[in-house]
Structures are given as structure tokens and as C-alpha cells.
């Protein structure tokens, strides 16, 4: 596993929104490299561009200028369905509000992405069960999201995000809706996945607890990178 392998590269990426006749510059010429095994956080005040940057990296949003490569493939000019395919194969999302599919059980939520990928049922089942067990959700496999606590739901969301073995996981404020105990446990879990399995994480967060545990901190302000600091192991 080469720690230096670049999984995502951004070159002068800008994103301008039009709100009525007003142009909002969410990102201004961001250049950034995410390497395999990174456990990075994007920090900055509200409106600094953290979520937009995550969305652009994950192919949910497309930049108005600049170029992006994910696993060596340029994604900036991909069609909607190509982008969907890219997200399916290479990206894992974790949302602030969990956003599990309400009508599917925990197990089915974890299986969902693998199913879209066409992984056979037996393999899906084995991998999902193993992941849920690893994340401490044994016995809750058949519960629907509404029957799980916030922390449990977010762990299912993490399991869903990593189940299909993406090259990068993008949690957007994952601890914002959790109490400090559940948030801490979730972070420990993700850190363990990062260290043991080499899963790459890029967070956006306001939470000092997240920043504390990160090995790389990218500070954003007004859509620009103010600082990019790597911490020793």
C-alpha cells in the first residue's frame, strides 16, 4: 500500500452558484491532492466551501472551472449517468442526517450499494453481516432506521459507505447530530478502518473532536484553502 498514491486531484477548481442575479463564489481556484490512506478534515466557518468541496470531489456537484481527477480519471465533464457510476464504484458518502433509506433494514441498507454494483447475493450477505458485526451492530441487522438510535444509524451509514470498498469516503459533518459519546465512538471506528483497512477519509466538520483526531487538516476560508497541515502519525 503506497501512502503516496494520489486518489483525488483538484486543479484550480472553482464553483460559482447563481442566486437570483447574484454570483456566489463557493470555491475559488482550489488545488488539492488526496492521497491513499489520508484521514483528512476540511474545516472552516459556515459558507467557507467545505460541503461544496466534498460534493465536487464526490461527483455530486460539478465545478464551473478547473479539473478534477478521481483515481486517475477526470470527472469534471462526465455525464450524469457516468457520474452516478463513478460514485457507485469509487465514492462513499456519510451524511450529517444519516439519510438511510427508511424502508430498508440496516442489513439491506448496507447491501444496497453492493447490489447496485452487481455483487452476488451470497457475497453481499456475508460482507454486510461481517461489517455490521465489526461496527457493533450485531443483532440490529433487521431493524429499520426509525428503530435505531442516531449513533446506530450513523454507524449503519458508515457501513454502507465502506461496504462497496470505495477508494474514498466523504463524511459531511458526521458527528453533528450525535452526542459526544456516540460521536467519539464513531470517530474511533472510522480511524480504526483507516488504520487497519487503509480506507481514505475526507471529512467536513465543525467538531473539534474530529479535528483533533485528523492526520491532515485543510482550512478553508471564503472558498480558498487557507492552510493545509499534515500532522505526524
Amino acid at each position: 500500500m503506497s501512502a503516496d498514491k494520489v486518489v483525488v486531484r483538484l486543479e484550480q477548481v472553482a464553483r460559482v452558484y447563481r442566486q437570483n442575479s447574484l454570483a456566489v463564489h463557493a470555491l475559488r481556484g482550489i488545488s488539492l491532492e488526496i492521497r491513499k490512506g489520508d484521514f483528512a478534515v476540511l474545516v472552516g466557518p459556515s459558507g467557507s466551501g467545505k460541503t461544496t468541496l466534498l460534493n465536487v470531489i464526490g461527483g455530486l456537484d460539478t465545478p464551473t472551472a478547473g479539473r478534477i481527477w478521481v483515481a486517475g480519471t477526470e470527472t469534471g465533464r462526465m455525464s450524469k449517468s457516468k457520474l452516478a457510476e463513478m460514485r457507485l464504484r469509487k465514492i462513499g458518502f456519510v451524511f450529517q442526517e444519516f439519510n438511510l433509506i427508511p424502508v430498508l433494514s440496516a442489513l439491506e441498507n448496507v447491501e444496497f450499494v453492493m447490489l447496485l454494483q452487481g455483487i452476488p447475493e451470497a457475497e453481499r450477505r456475508v460482507r454486510s453481516n461481517a461489517l455490521l458485526k465489526e461496527l457493533g451492530l450485531q443483532g440490529l441487522e433487521h431493524r429499520r432506521p426509525s428503530e435505531l438510535s442516531g449513533g446506530q444509524q450513523q454507524r449503519v451509514a458508515v457501513a454502507r459507505a465502506i461496504a462497496a470498498e470505495p477508494i474514498i469516503v466523504l463524511p459531511d459533518e458526521p458527528t453533528a447530530n450525535l452526542d459526544s459519546k456516540a460521536g467519539g465512538a464513531l470517530l474511533d471506528l472510522m480511524r480504526r478502518l483507516n488504520e487497519q483497512k487503509g480506507v481514505t477519509f475526507v471529512f467536513s466538520t465543525h467538531d473539534p473532536m474530529v479535528v483533533e483526531r485528523a492526520r491532515r487538516v485543510v482550512r478553508l476560508k471564503d472558498g480558498e484553502i487557507e492552510a493545509d497541515e499534515r500532522r505526524p502519525e
Partner: peptide, 16 residues
Amino acid sequence: TREFGVLMALGTPPGA
């Protein structure tokens, strides 16, 4: 709407 957004974020193709 939000659920559909999540499905799309997870890589669900528009056809599905």
C-alpha cells in the same frame, strides 16, 4: 426528494 438525492449520491442510476 431527499431520499432520491441520497439514492443518487450512492450511485443509483437515474433509470433506476
